[in-house]
């Protein structure tokens, strides 16, 4: 059993991160090649200045009109996306592991705080699921896959929470936690999670068209 744990916490972590990073790079390369071959006009309009203008405008909480029209959803969504990075990256247990492997360390969240933030992430996911059920225009667009995505993201957080508290099946819970975390990383380039890099690209293009050609704001 220890050998299996050594594998999922050792080589498998490397594999997951490599697939995650190389997968995204591969995706970007395919897009750039595709753009060069079929839609090279995109470069005539793409501008760094207006791309960044649009992306930053949309990063400021409650700056775009859209965010002010659906404040609850956006607030929860902002917090959720921030915590999605903050909790795993600044979790003490994770930093301890990185520290042991690479002698690197950085600021760590207090365990109790991280615990609360984890619950918030899961509650946000529950909110998204309920919203998919109850808001007609969202329900209309929702397919089974959208729930699968929510569950996949929820898994590492739920298992991490249960493992931290050592309620039951501790060993199995940690194993499930590690594997589900790696699953999320591996899936990012090949699923809708890729909006992590695609959204800035589509935003950049729309921002460039609005800035360069339309001379108007797009937020």
């Amino acid at each position: 059993m220890n050998a299996f744990i050594a594998f999922i916490m050792g080589p498998m972590v490397w594999i997951a991160f490599l697939i995650f990073i190389l997968g995204l790079i591969f995706k970007l390369v395919v897009i750039i090649k595709d753009v060069n071959a079929r839609e090279s006009y995109v470069y005539s309009y793409l501008s760094v200045k207006y791309s960044l203008r649009s992306i930053f405008a949309w990063l400021i909480p409650f700056f775009p009109q859209s965010t002010r029209q659906s404040p609850v959803f956006y607030a929860i969504s902002y917090i959720f996306h921030l915590l999605l990075f903050i909790v795993p990256v600044f979790l003490m247990s994770h930093i301890v592991l990185v520290n042991e492997a690479f002698q690197l360390s950085w600021f760590a969240l207090d365990d109790t705080l991280a615990d609360i933030l984890t619950v918030i992430v899961v509650l946000a996911l529950v909110f998204f699921a309920v919203r998919r059920q109850t808001v007609p225009e969202v329900k209309y667009l929702t397919s089974f896959n959208d729930y699968v995505l929510l569950i996949i993201v929820a898994l590492p957080f739920i298992t991490g929470f249960l493992a931290y508290h050592q309620f039951f099946f501790y060993r199995q819970m940690v194993i499930a936690h590690v594997i589900s975390g790696e699953l999320v990383l591996i899936l990012i380039p090949f699923s809708k999670f890729s909006h992590m890099v695609m959204a800035p690209l589509t935003r950049a293009y729309m921002g460039s068209e609005f800035g360069n050609v339309r001379h108007a704001k797009d937020w």
Binding site: A6, Y170, V174
Partner: peptide, 9 residues
């Protein structure tokens, strides 16, 4: 390949 290896163990 014996004994506890996980934090909570």
């Amino acid at each position: 390949n014996k004994g506890p290896v996980l934090c909570g163990e």
